[in-house]
């Protein structure tokens, strides 16, 4: 009879802690760009993600009464919804969006703040981001903030009271992977709040690298939704996040220029 040995780390209690709430999954996913709601549901479920971003937009007036809605397939009791401020280019628009989201979701106050600076890069406008974060925190929101990979700004956002800081790996939707691993590492080392890479991941190895750098989690959308097979990529990402986390906790060997034999040098008979 064979015995299945459970990997050690998966039995560890190693939750992601955001604003005092524990999450088992360190993968956060967006819900945009999918073919339809069924594919969204399947990919989200397969990813194992518990925190799911949504966008706030005008309703389609004259919508068909029976037409399913995103919140019908992603029930509020099962997922923590993270409304985003995507598409906002000013602090004012971002704050308005968060207030509407809070009303929409019955007082839910966890939000993803992103204030964009430029359509070509979708890089954050840091001046507007800081202003919006300040207003939102004063207004009682728990702010997870999208920012660039600048350690000084990341620290500033943490000191203001953001509950998580989310530096980009590369431009949103670019799939370029982590362009500045040294800055991400510095941001992680300086932080007392969770650091999540948000945006720029292209494939599973990118997510694993983020976790190996010590990030607390990764938020992604396009890498899954834009894959040839989104549901399979969701599964790959789930494993990459877990593998990267375990590798980080395990502590990798140092890099060396030259070889180090794996087999003993004593006892050779030749």
């Amino acid at each position: 009879m064979s015995t299945v040995i459970q990997p050690e780390a998966s039995s560890h209690h190693d939750p992601l802690l955001v604003a005092g709430v524990e999450y088992r999954s360190r993968l956060l996913v967006g819900t945009g760009k999918y073919k339809d709601l069924e594919q969204t549901r399947q990919a989200v479920e397969t990813s194992g993600a518990e925190i799911i971003t949504v966008a706030i937009r005008r309703t389609n007036i004259g919508q068909k009464p029976g037409e399913p809605n995103l919140l019908d397939v992603l029930p509020l009791d099962r997922y923590t919804l993270l409304p985003n401020t995507a598409g906002c280019y000013s602090a004012e628009d971002a704050v308005r969006t968060c207030r509407l989201a809070r009303e929409l979701l019955d007082g839910h106050d966890l939000v993803k703040l992103e204030v964009l600076g430029d359509e070509k890069t979708l890089f954050p406008d840091i001046v507007q981001t800081l202003e919006a974060a300040e207003t939102l925190i004063k207004d009682g929101f728990k702010v997870m903030v999208y920012t660039n990979d600048d350690p000084i700004i990341a620290k500033r956002l943490e000191d203001m009271g953001c509950v998580a800081v989310m530096p980009l790996a590369a431009p949103i939707g670019s799939g370029l992977g982590i362009r500045n691993p040294y800055n991400i590492r510095t941001i992680v080392e300086n932080a007392r709040v969770p650091i999540l890479v948000d945006a720029g991941v292209g494939t599973a190895s990118d997510a694993a690298v983020a976790m190996e750098l010590g990030c607390d989690g990764v938020l992604m959308n396009t890498a899954i939704a834009g894959a040839q097979d989104p549901v399979l990529m969701a599964s790959a990402m789930k494993k990459a996040i877990e593998a990267g986390r375990e590798a980080y906790l395990a502590g990798r060997i140092p890099r060396k220029r030259f070889a180090s034999a794996s087999s003993p040098l004593e006892g050779t008979f030749f």
Binding site: G30, T31, G32, K33, Y34, T40, T53, V54, A55, I56, R57, R58, T59, I61, N69, L70, L71, L81, P83, N84, A86, L100, A101, L104, L105, I172, A199, L219, M220, N221, T222, A225
Partner: peptide, 8 residues
Amino acid sequence: VVHAIGGG
């Protein structure tokens, strides 16, 4: 009048 839709 707004609602939640898919987004990243």
